[in-house]
Amino acid sequence: MIPRRDLPLLLLGGALVAARPAWADDDEDKRAARWKEVREAIFGDRAIGDGTSVVGLDAPPRAEDAALVPVALLVKDPARVSGVYLVIDGNPGPLAAHVHFGALADPRRLTLRVRVDQYTDMHAVAETRDGALLAVSHFIKAAGGCSTPMGSQLDASLADAGFMRLRLIGPVAPGQPVQALLMVRHPNFNGMQMDPVTRNYTPARFIQTVDIGFEGQPVLRLDSDISLASDPAIGFGFTPPKAGKLTVAVRDSSGAAWHEAFDVAPLS
């Protein structure tokens, strides 16, 4: 009998193939070595301490769809933290996102959807106001997310690139934090999808910065890279001091920029 390999699930556009890619790596020593390499590339020789009491990372143990993995960055000590990095160690571009929180941010919960390319550790690294780095990690089983072909929304993502929507989750009241979901239509091509006929890759074109403010005051700035899933959806909290406009500026790697303003008014 053919021995069954210990197989993770690899999703193939709706049809599943269980596979254990040759490069999948569940060896802890190798993952630790990878993290050392990645963190030195991103943070140089800065010390990174245990962030358990300050930051959290919510992600599934196994990706249902490696090209759309929901991730939540949790800040447990908002007063101390100025920003959070999301690092997906095994991705071709490991620094998936850096979020810098502004005065009106409620940093307790920030959500993203990412691509995950292989079995890997992910790290949430909080930066404190006094410049310390504190990290937690999460191991995820996923494969192929970065080269997964674009799904059924590709045509819409291309046609409507830069179109935005804002959903407010829960009631709005002056001075009270509220959760919001910002959705941006954009294919977020990462340059890794190949056309076997032309032997060309679709050129990378992805969202690099998202600046969110409220009536001239900063909420947050997101610097991102090829690891965000197509049609990026960013969940964040903010505290509007009064009724007003939430403003969003998005720029992608081709230099295209889009601006939008959303009315945020208390329900009354």
């Binding site: 556009g13 193939v17 997964t148």
Partner: peptide, 27 residues
Amino acid sequence: ALATRGEYYRRHLAELLGAEAAGPVVT
């Protein structure tokens, strides 16, 4: 659809079954 997905499917099927058993993309 095969232009954007076929090679991805083939590569991962080949990782599972071996390239010979998986076969090429046929258009």
